[in-house]
Design a protein around this nucleic acid. Sequence first.
RNA 1: GCCGAGUUGGCGGAAUGGUAGACGCGACGGUCUCAAAAACCGUUGUCCGAAAGGGCGUGCGGGUUCGAGUCCCGCACUCGGCACCA
Length: 952
Amino acid sequence: MPSVSTPEDTNTSHRYTSALAGDIERRWQDRWDAEGTFEAPNPTGDLAGDVSGDKYFIMDMFPYPSGAGLHVGHPLGYIATDVVGRYRRMRGDNVLHALGYDAFGLPAEIHAVQTGEHPRTNTVANIANMRRQLRRLGLAHDPRRSFATIDPDFVKWTQWIFIQIFESWYDEEKGRARPISELRAEYEAGLRTAPDGAVWADLAPLERRMLIDSVRLAYVDESPVNWCPGLGTVLANEEVTAEGRSERGNFPVFTRNLRQWKMRITAYSDRLIDDLERVDWPESVKNMQRNWIGRSHGARVTFRVESAQTSFDVFTTRPDTLFGATYAVLAPEHELVDTLTAEAWPEGTPRAWTTGLETPAEAVAAYRAVAAAKTDVERQAGSSEGGKDKTGVFTGSYAVNPVNGEEIPVFIADYVLTGYGTGAIMAVPGGDQRDWEFAEAYGLPIIHTVEPPEGVEGAYPGEGPAVNSAHVTDDGSGLDINGLGVDDAKTAVITWLQQHGAGEGTTTYRLRDWLFSRQRYWGEPFPIVYDESDQPIAVPESMLPVDLPDVPDYSPRTYEPEDAESTPEPPLARADDWVHVTLDLGDGPRSYRRETNTMPNWAGSSWYELRYTDPHNAEQMAGPENERYWLGPRNPGETGGVDLYVGGVEHAVLHLLYARFWHKVLFDLGHVSGEEPFHRLFNQGYIQAYAYTDERGTYVPADEVEERDGQFFLGNKVVNREYGKMGKSLKNVVTPDEMYDAYGADTFRVYEMSMGPLDVSRPWETRAVVGSQRFLQRVWRLLVDEDSGELQVDDAELDAATLHVLHTTIDGVRGDMEHMRFNTAVAKLIELTNHLTKVGVSSRAAVEPLVLMLAPLAPHLGEELWSRLGHEESLIRTAFPVADPAHLAASSVTCVIQVLGKVRGKIEVDPSIGDDELTALALAEPNVVRSIDGREVRKVIVKAPKLVSIVV
RNA sequence: GCCGAGUUGGCGGAAUGGUAGACGCGACGGUCUCAAAAACCGUUGUCCGAAAGGGCGUGCGGGUUCGAGUCCCGCACUCGGCACCA
């Protein structure tokens, strides 16, 4: 493809070239800045102003300021939200639209490690560069509301929110978070006893603290976490791929027991799922979140093991199949495995169950050793597809199936996972594929408890009447569910279990608590210190923000990516002077030790929507009146939240889940007025690009590749085409700066908006951009004489045809704007422009609406033409044109005549034509007569005035 | 395996159950020019035909309907998410 170029040598000196566009664009950008055109007033505070009209809060997923700069894909969403914002202003709304920077993160830290330069220096420089690139796009942002998450007064409130979360607990009874102070008060008043029955008054001070600490929404806990030696930090579940690698960097991740900070997001599982019904989000994202939280309803069933005088609970979603449970399986790591391991193999134990070893203890130990040596990925490997090689070993114990008293063998097997449900299952080979495979391998009985349909072999997990599911006892306490459907059978079994103390209905979740600490330098420090008892204490608000110390070395200790045995070591731990502090926390100066982990870079993005509403507030994260105005629910029962949030789908379960969680905690604690941060979410697609490799597989510069006869050449060498991301290493990056230079920002904006629907990904094609430039040039030419530069607009009245085209365009473009169908809006504006050009109309009555409709898409050109039309004020608050219904009806319409569903003729008719008259005209049309060919007309369907369908 | 989205000219894409392919790119032809570029005008799904007109066409196979890209049933493929989750 040829490199970007545009003709600058023209015969006419006032043509809309990229140079002229550039002049116009820079001039208007300066004027907008100088006049504060896009400043959005607040109800109160330093940004207070007139807040008449509806409010409309638009947000983009804010960017990480990468040093690589922008490519043409990055601004797609920003342009779209800008068009929406400009359109809403023309509708009279008070529009809040600003852009901040998500500026903590790994690349700056890596850069710092490599160069020794403080990450802040590099980050600030990157932000400046990005601001410059984006300013040139002409985005209608309120510059007063921009911030970066690394700004000390932003960090202060991030830390403040952390403290609110730390200082609260989840009251299951009330279904909301409450301050720890209230819990402590209830304990002190004797209104509450500890879960283990302990009485507050009897507890030692440290015991009291540990009791409280154990229920905090932000807590320190030793548990299995994702340790990524290659990154030198632990990661949240959401940051680990299904393949067990880090989402960032693709390094291996290992499970390690480590003491780390977590957030009790699981307390909100139900609300996070249920409230998805109340927001206007893409169904796909809602589904991903539901999937990730993974709520499943079922039952907990208790199985007695008489020989060991104990019992274990299993979780099942299919209590109706309990009669088909022919064995039970514990995860190898289950805490009862040792207890359940028998002294000796029972009489007649099959050899396959013992792995040939002398005692259950040996067999169990051997199996556990093998399982422990495998990574999670290895344990799953080879099992999912076709589900072969299920392995396990018999514990030597039997458990009692509560519904029928049958003794069933208890196995351990690594196809049962520790982290889900109770870590133990009842195995129903008749209804579960995995259990079926295990039963086949170990010769265990198989009982179908749901009648499988004719011809179904193997495990049958579907609907059907229960069979083999009855146990009749003399005293009438037995259970009989034969014949019941799955749902009724479930209910019946759960009721029976509850009555007999053998289980209950329950719900489990896949979601785990959010691992919140990272062993990095470039993140928010925790506002936490430890005293001599090693329990965490929140730093008082007056001491916020806790700043990062300067350190000689920014890197965490990193390791070989495969070094699973390594241990995380945060860089802040090396800043001795910072770690050890003397503070007065109310009982005189004492020594404390600071928390040396930092927050993940999701912290800032979990609440930044709030800061846009009141960005300079020094007293609060956001003043309540401003927060409520922009984010509060407008009607009772609504969730509130940003009116339109646009960004990529990659944050479906990361940022969007975390932000919802924080917002709900803040709502519970009374700090925000709405239950959801983002009312409407829109996922824009990606702009992708072709990349080319030569015969060695090396990427070659995409802009030097030419297409000939369906093949791609670099010079005279054939190269291979790939399709995917735009990136430096792929040598296919096209930058906005190149587009500004070659076409101007308005052309670039119009092209991006006209490429296709906003939510669909599509390939970038530089050579097609010229089409948008030609369009803007035609608009320019309608109003401006290219030779003289003079305005050439008259006040002539519009002819009927032009009025019709104009008003259908207005009507259509308005609808398209409302629904963010910018591609079709542009197409309609092109059609109007082409019509005006063709009929030679440059009347003010036509071109003024055209300019106004074009302005959200090509704002600089819009302003320039509007100003040349004699208007002194910016058009930003000029009303968007409204169609006159009188001109929407055409003076004549084309009526299509179908014979047997095929189009056989077209006639021009009056729009008000009656059915009878139209039928007569249709039946007289020569080609229609020929098609009917003398056959009997059996039926005529008339949809006047557009269609007549004749059945013969 | 489960869940979700999708499949329309050479390309990006349009189409409240009613003229499939709007608009744009590219290609072809023309105007202007010594020439070229730019700009402008025209043609452009495909096959048959001199034309009029006709056949075939929205991943594949069925169905509903006067009429299906659109609705229903089944299938294939592509992309995304989840996955030994009980």
